[in-house]
């Protein structure tokens, strides 16, 4: 059974569609990567799932079910009960995601206290354990410190500890490492996948780095222009990508066996803003396989490995 099931989700700002028909599911314990260039609607999809869309943005269509319970439309359940307990989120900016005036131990303990699952003393104890698990040295002393006394990487570990302390069933991580330097990025990602595996937590990992995807994800969803253009198991996507956009994304990964001096591949053109999305396939302004058919919207077809393209790179 699916843990998180997003069906035909559409989000708009007033009349402007930003996410347009996203269907995505995550099974218990699975790590799913949501990839795509900036502005493709990854964050909005995630924020819809956790019910934290900014003011002025609305879900105009679709269904979101978590653990079998619906969050949208009629019979919707109270997200507050679920958030922070079964469903947790880590944001991109670790430093600003922490309260600058609250000791980090208390911030890690927060979700246990808010949901009344532990007394303050127990929660504090658990927070110190959790800080230890995410690899913060001398957690007992560190728990008393303020975020400003910690490095960015440490702060991101604190965020992970805060998100995972209540053993959520799903963790949504929105580009958890973009604010960190490269050596620390790998450590943080390893930490997230290790902890998720230990606790059986499913992860929705949002990123635009295909390298990260290859390393940690079980499945991949590729987004472009507010739609899913391809989804499937990591091996399938990496060995036989079908959508031309996925193909280009894969070519952007720097490789050690590249001839030196050859420039890294960059996808030609720019991501059109939601105001200038073309009709039909949204990638048709940048695609090298475009034909007349691409002025119609391609359906997402396939069984395990699904793609929305009239001229796929490889056939099913």
């Amino acid at each position: 059974m699916s843990l998180l099931e997003i069906t035909d989700l559409a989000v708009s700002a007033g009349d402007l569609p930003l996410v347009d028909g996203v269907t995505l599911d995550i099974k218990a314990g699975e790590i799913v990567a949501l990839v795509g260039e900036s502005g493709s609607g990854k964050s909005l999809t995630a924020l819809s799932a956790i019910g934290l869309l900014a003011e002025g943005l609305d879900v105009t269509r679709g269904q979101i079910r978590f653990n079998g319970a619906s969050f949208l439309g009629e019979g919707a359940q109270d997200l507050g009960q679920v958030r922070g307990r079964d469903l947790a989120m880590i944001f991109q900016e670790p430093v600003s995601s922490l309260n600058p005036l609250m000791p980090i131990g208390a911030q890690v303990a927060e979700s246990l206290i808010v949901h009344g699952v532990a007394s303050v003393a127990e929660a504090t104890e658990a927070a110190i354990d959790m800080l230890d698990r995410v690899g913060i040295p001398d957690p007992k002393r560190r728990a008393q410190q303020l975020p400003a006394e910690l490095s960015g990487g440490m702060c991101q570990r604190v965020m992970i500890a805060a998100a995972l302390i209540s053993k959520p069933r799903l963790l949504i991580a929105d580009e958890p490492t973009t604010a960190l330097d490269v050596t620390i990025q790998a450590q943080i990602l390893d930490l997230i996948s290790a902890l998720a595996k230990q606790d059986g937590t499913a992860v929705l990992m949002i990123t635009h780095d295909m390298g990260i995807v290859a390393e940690m994800a079980d499945r991949v969803c590729v987004m472009y222009g507010g739609r899913i253009v391809e989804q499937g198991a990591v091996e399938a996507i990496f060995t036989a990508p079908r959508h031309p956009y996925t193909g280009m994304l894969l070519r952007t990964i720097p490789r050690l066996d590249h001839p030196p001096k050859q420039a890294l591949f960059a996808i030609p053109g720019n991501v059109p803003s939601p105001k200038n999305w073309p009709t039909g396939c949204r990638f048709n302004t940048r695609c090298d396989r475009k034909s007349g058919r691409c002025d119609a919207v391609p359906a997402l077809t396939g069984d395990q490995h699904r793609t929305a393209c009239f001229h796929p790179l490889s056939e099913a």
Partner: peptide, 21 residues
């Protein structure tokens, strides 16, 4: 600021978010 959003995301009640954050 994100830490307020996050605290809401964790299910913090209005009085708690106001008082603590």
């Amino acid at each position: 600021r994100p830490f307020v959003t996050l605290s809401q995301a964790m299910g913090g009640s209005v009085p708690r978010v106001l008082w603590v954050h």
